[in-house]
């Protein structure tokens, strides 16, 4: 009897858990569904009665209208350029540094490692004033280059990839070396292939972060021709100033969609790679 009661209690707890999770999952996605549904309705529909989650009238032309109202196409191309260059440059400079910190011995290694990863504690928001000055001196105000440069030496990436490189057994490197491999060959044929999950994880995180960048482009750009999606949306909002909600939501969904679609197709890779990354063991 007692066992039976305990079983029932456990089952109830289990159901309660599901109910809570369901509720939180709904809160997480309902705002997006609402925005999506608003973005495909005619503008008068938002003043209707009820909650308005499911559209009754459709107007897909909203998306064409925003493309005409602001250069969202240019913003999209700029975003892809900036994000691609950021991630490629990050990997190019981080991987050698991570390799040196993980596998080579040299004077001052620990101090230098600290200096490299302390960058994590200094978000660009905190040091925007002097960085703006640096860009002005370099003549890079209002360029896509300026949107890439401050993010290249990622302390976070150096830390992640170094932790991973450290776990690769010395014996593998030794045997590669005996076969006459230099550092470059070792990196290319041993370290990088064995660290693919973590490199993917870092790249995905970096793509998301830089796709979303708003603050730095706001400061450093002056014309639509170099602006990216997030800041483009910000400008669009100011220009429209709350006039038409369906257009505003179409603009909003336009910058959300690419990442969401990317996520839906790579869902497992995304979540699993995020999981690996927090395996913070030495």
């Amino acid at each position: 009897m007692k066992i039976k009661l305990a079983k029932i209690k456990e089952k109830m707890g289990h159901l309660l858990g599901h109910a809570i999770l369901m509720f939180i999952a709904l809160i997480a996605i309902v705002p997006l569904i609402w925005a999506l549904s608003t973005s495909i309705q005619p503008s008068h529909a938002v003043f209707g009665q009820g909650i308005g989650l499911i559209p009754t009238e459709f107007r897909f032309e909203n998306y064409l209208d925003i493309l005409n109202a602001a250069p969202f196409g240019t913003y999209l191309i700029n975003t892809i350029i900036v994000v691609t260059f950021t991630v490629i440059m990050q990997l190019l400079v981080i991987i050698p540094a991570a390799y040196a910190f993980a596998k080579l011995e040299f004077f001052g290694r620990d101090v230098l490692f600290f200096i490299f990863i302390a960058q994590m504690l200094l978000p660009l928001q905190a040091i925007v004033v002097p960085n703006y000055d640096v860009m002005r001196v370099l003549g890079l105000i209002n360029t896509r280059t300026a949107m890439v440069l401050p993010f290249i030496a990622s302390g976070y990436g150096t830390f992640l990839i170094r932790q991973q490189f450290k776990q690769i057994p010395e014996s593998l490197i030794e045997s590669a070396r005996i076969d006459g491999a230099g550092h470059f060959t070792i990196l290319k044929h041993v370290m990088i292939p064995l660290s693919k999950p973590i490199i993917t994880a870092f790249s995905l995180i970096s793509i998301v972060i830089h796709w979303n960048d708003y603050f730095w482009p706001l400061i450093i750009t002056e014309t639509p021709s170099v602006r990216t999606l997030a800041i483009g949306l910000g400008m669009f909002v100011q220009q429209e100033s709350g006039a038409d909600w369906t257009l505003l939501m179409a603009g909003t969904m336009f910058i959300v969609m690419p990442l969401l679609i990317f996520f839906i197709f790579n869902q497992r890779i995304f979540i699993e790679s995020l999981m690996i990354k927090s395996g913070m063991k030495e």
Partner: peptide
């Protein structure tokens, strides 16, 4: 659960802000 709870993370802050101005 994992996918839906993770989804807002992918929404650019600018878009999330706009979305919530509406909400």
């Amino acid at each position: 659960y994992e996918a839906s709870i993770f989804t807002p993370t992918l929404v650019p802050m600018a878009a999330a802000a706009m979305l919530w101005v509406f909400i």
